[in-house]
Nucleic acid binder design. Sequence first.
DNA 1: GTCTATATACCGATAGAC
DNA 2: GTCTATCGGTATATAGAC
Lengths: 216, 216
Amino acid sequence: MGRIAGSSGARTAASIRRAGLRLIYRRGFEAMSLRELAAEVGIQAASLYNHIRTKQDLLFDLIREHMERLLAHTDLALAAAPAGAEDRLRAFVASHVTYHLERKHEVFVANFELRALDPRHFAAIVALRRAYEEKLVAVLDLGVARGEFRIGDTRITAYAILAMLTGACTWYKPEGRLTKQEVVALHTGLVMHGCLGLAPTEGRSGTGLAALSRDS
Amino acid sequence: MGRIAGSSGARTAASIRRAGLRLIYRRGFEAMSLRELAAEVGIQAASLYNHIRTKQDLLFDLIREHMERLLAHTDLALAAAPAGAEDRLRAFVASHVTYHLERKHEVFVANFELRALDPRHFAAIVALRRAYEEKLVAVLDLGVARGEFRIGDTRITAYAILAMLTGACTWYKPEGRLTKQEVVALHTGLVMHGCLGLAPTEGRSGTGLAALSRDS
DNA sequence: GTCTATATACCGATAGAC
DNA sequence: GTCTATCGGTATATAGAC
């Protein structure tokens, strides 16, 4: 007797994934019990096994789908961006920040629960993460090759940028004082100009970090 | 019959804390069992309770001591820095990165296991984190007040800087190709100038990110 | 302060009726 | 596909001997 009258198997499966993501985010993968998950969905614990093979597989599927969605999201953004390195970097930053602000739970689970994966699953996710990082490295390398950027170590710089951008979803709240667009603009400015707010060389100061008022 | 001949209670307690930190880092707080911890120390699980009150208290103590050490480390660095905002920001960045590269385990546990704390302990750690963040916000505010920095939102910028700098300890390895000093210099450059590597206004380009070769 | 033994509870996963 | 019942194992924590 499920909680949702007339629920089909597919609906139950979707409900398990949704509830599982939220519970893993809030309590941690190890701390979440399958009894707890089943109660949230409104079924008995044993019934979960009609939809998942093991608890570990549920975690892996959630993370894998997040990574594949993130990769597709970025490909779309980069495909629509002009060929110039600065434009492509701006597109990457906007894509990354926007996605991360909208998928906070997925981001946390994918970043913090990797160690709960067994070696095989772990390696698969690391490969996807690597592929994502390479997209940013490629943009930075392009900028260096075109003489637009001066970067000593594009890989480490890419890691630093990703860490900074991802950090936004740890404090962002939809009902907070900053809109998503403002968070994107603020981080774009930080990536482009650093926190000293040196005047940009191309007359873009009107859209940069320095243009954002503290009370906006 | 402890594993270490002649071990005193204080030595056992220190061993528990050291092993606990490593196990929580590697496996997660919920995934680490007290039997596992005791085996690592070389005693029986029941003997742990001569040194810790509960598993939860062990976690809290480890995180609290890390935060207090970090705060003291930063105070020392800032006390030795000149009064100018740029110098103080450079001192903060160097202090933060250096400490984080040397205390990777503590940093991970303090950042990723907060949700395992009960509400009372959680609130205490959040207060310490807030105090730490305020130190960077104060430096940024000083720079804005003195006209050295142009920053629209010093709090969000501080969060972004902290996320970027802390991220370094996720990939840094002592035996890797970059020295600690190079990692500090690289991140200082990113904070000061952004990834576009615009020429600094004060003739510091020789020490900035752009001066670091990819092959260094 | 360490040990052995154990209390009490929950865990992931399975069996089999409906 | 969901249910009830349960298996075998482990969890934190405590009791009491030495």
